[in-house]
Design a binder for these strands. Sequence first.
DNA 1: ATTCTATAATTAGATTATCGAACTATTTGA
DNA 2: TCAAATAGTTCGATAATCTAATTATAGAAT
Lengths: 159, 159
Amino acid sequence: MDLTELLAQDLFEVVPLIMQAIRQDMRRERGHDLSVMQFRALAHIERKTSTAGMAALTLTALADHLGLTASSTSTLVEGLVEKGLVERRDCPEDRRRLSLQLTDAGRALTRHAREAARAALAIRVQAMRPEDTKILLQALKILRPLYEDTSAEIKNMEN
Amino acid sequence: MDLTELLAQDLFEVVPLIMQAIRQDMRRERGHDLSVMQFRALAHIERKTSTAGMAALTLTALADHLGLTASSTSTLVEGLVEKGLVERRDCPEDRRRLSLQLTDAGRALTRHAREAARAALAIRVQAMRPEDTKILLQALKILRPLYEDTSAEIKNMEN
DNA sequence: ATTCTATAATTAGATTATCGAACTATTTGA
DNA sequence: TCAAATAGTTCGATAATCTAATTATAGAAT
């Protein structure tokens, strides 16, 4: 068995395991009821709007990042708007588009949820050696570009 | 920001991204219609029954591994039984329990699905340098024990 | 031995997250 | 100026999950 094959198998076993744990950790953190996707959406909106002078984040761009259809993303955003965490602003340059923005409450909750996620991870990671932490950080740095914002490409490959 | 915090944040961003991709890759691989959970179930049954003389794998044990309720797992297994991939055998020592086994078809499909997962990953990973592959393998080796079979413990913590 | 309590699995009903298709509004460009 | 493409929403259907109730069995306590 070559290394790539081994890696595929490990990824395929371990990633869903971690994902499962993340979901459970988030559910346990009751009070603010965010799904993993909603949290990812908030985090992405925050990242894309934090630096001034960036192009507005549209619904479709968010959908691509999340790997969901525009339809699903629209519903998801609607939920966040109802919770008062996100604002849909009009886009003067192109009136078909939205500009997604966090409200103050949205920003506060994003910070809080991030902290909760960190805490949940810390429980699991507390015994970890610092050099292992570094390896993990390296690994994630390698993985991220392989999977980031490829949803659009991949969708096109299907046709 | 300390390293653990950085790691938590990265994990929380990258893992769902990969998970998303895995789901899409599996859906694209049409023909044998397995959900990610069903695939995980098959893989776990295979692993736990491959070595002779092991205790039978029960429904509850599988549920714990998958991080699902017994109820959901029962339904999931029912689907696999209907597809002819899994057998529910009686457990003579304790007649409340099941012993879950793969059928021959189940074993064949598990191998095939694993290969499909590998192929999907290979597309993403083809340009990766061998030393990066090694880092990823190390990282997964560190992560696995942090998340493997902890569902039961975690559930207990909730009470 | 009988009866209480705990455990294993299933079933029923509700909820949630997702999708695709149909629709409206707007823009682009031929 | 009108046809095609694009951005977003809504609707109906389907998957996967949950909780609560149910049945069967086992183990423990009197």
